[in-house]
Write a protein that binds this DNA or RNA. Structure first.
Lengths: 110, 110
DNA sequence: TCGTTATTTCGAATATTCTAGAAACATGGA
DNA sequence: TCCATGTTTCTAGAATATTCGAAATAACGA
């Protein structure tokens, strides 16, 4: 139960970390703008002017944590942002808002 | 205009980075649960069992990017999560969803 | 003033991330 | 088969982040 929560924390933290790099955040935001169509790696590269190896590395990381999905069309690899994952992340962050009760010492039963 | 966007990206990325460390994410989530009352540094320490110096460092970082605010009551320093900042962050991330038009070559005027 | 409580700063070892050039691979077309 | 296109892997140096013990500071109460 505690480990499960820790796991959830670790997973969520990983996702936030991936969004925490300016290059990756730019990639993700660009993908969000084109969420309806998706964008190929090459299109992203043209738009953001990042070396291919760097771009590939960052996209890989976004894919690894589930923030981006990929679909291949022959030689071209299309990327799509997983917007639901963001929504889940925000829920995880905020859902328990103000649920904490100040602990009251339990009355000892006799 | 480009620099402004880059600045925004950089600022948002910083905030995500701060949420990307498991210890800091735990601190923030704990604060969200107690958002109505706030929590002192000491209370956080009891709950999360993190050495004081580590905790102080992480709280400082959350404060630096505006994710947490502090208010002092004599010796005790209370921390409060800035939930609006999260909402702004999500808006920044998703607001432009599907707004990108595939660029169409402009017709040359004669 | 002195001790106590609450929190921060310092310092340093260890780990992780970022970046990009060069080379490799994979797919399809001529 | 050979070439071009699209993307990834390898490698490695430089930069940042993480962690925590020890010492310092700050605020109050006796």
């Amino acid at each position: 139960m505690r480990e499960e929560r820790d796991l959830q924390i670790a997973e969520a933290a990983k996702k936030f970390t991936e969004l925490g790099n300016p290059t990756r955040l730019s990639i993700f935001r660009l993908l969000v703008k084109a969420a309806d169509t998706g964008l190929s790696v090459g299109e992203i590269q043209k738009e953001l002017d990042v070396p291919g190896s760097t771009l590939s590395h960052h996209i890989q990381r976004l894919v690894n944590v589930g923030l981006v999905a990929q679909r291949r069309d022959s030689r071209t690899l299309y990327c799509e942002p997983q917007i639901m994952v963001i929504q889940e992340l925000v829920t995880f962050l905020l859902a328990e808002c103000c649920t904490r009760q100040t602990q009251i010492d339990p009355v000892q039963p006799d």
